[in-house]
């Protein structure tokens, strides 16, 4: 960047503490992961679809879902990418991988980290398993990442 442009730039930061009241469903989901290393979903009483992460209302039936079911710690990768570009606000140092993962027994997908940064070793349809954090911090990252199996 030229010196001329650089002079016109003020570099600042926005640092603000927040707390998020996540609701009863997220509370149970995250607590089960941290305490019991269990991944829980909820099941629609009408269509039987199992949502992981859990939602209160089925998107197709508009039914309230209250039946909690445990799903597998293993799942199938539906899509992936390897992050190689670095920005200051990333959860890990690149390179690292993100996958869209459908856990065994679930009907929805969720996005999480995969501890494999070589794109050649990743493929759609590969099997992965959750690795839990030793010291949970009430975060979705209490599943630290998924590993290839």
């Amino acid at each position: 960047m030229s010196e001329e442009i650089e002079k016109k730039i003020y570099r600042g930061r926005i640092k603000v503490p927040y707390k998020h009241t996540a609701g009863a469903y997220v509370e149970r989901f995250i607590t089960e992961i941290g305490k019991n290393n269990k991944i829980m979903g909820v099941k629609c009483p009408k269509c039987g679809k199992v949502y992981v992460p859990p939602k209160m209302i089925c998107f197709t039936c508009f039914e309230k879902m209250e039946e909690w079911v445990e799903v597998g710690k293993q799942g199938t990768v539906k899509g992936f990418t390897v992050v190689t570009h670095s920005t200051p606000v990333m959860p890990l140092e690149p390179p690292y991988a993100y996958g869209i993962i459908t856990l065994d027994g679930a009907d929805t997908d969720f996005v999480h980290l995969i501890n494999e940064s070589d794109p050649k070793k990743l493929k759609i349809g590969m099997r992965v398993e959750a690795v839990f954090k030793e010291k949970p911090r009430k975060r979705i990252l209490d599943i630290e990442y998924f590993k290839a199996i």
């Binding site: 003020y10 600042g12 926005i14 603000v16 503490p17 927040y18 707390k19 998020h20 009241t21």
Partner: peptide, 18 residues
């Protein structure tokens, strides 16, 4: 839901940084 952040801190971010 002002309990989740803080009005004063949030408002400061709405103004001219310099």
């Amino acid at each position: 839901k002002l309990n989740e952040g803080g009005a004063t801190t949030g408002i400061i971010t709405a103004f001219d940084p310099v």
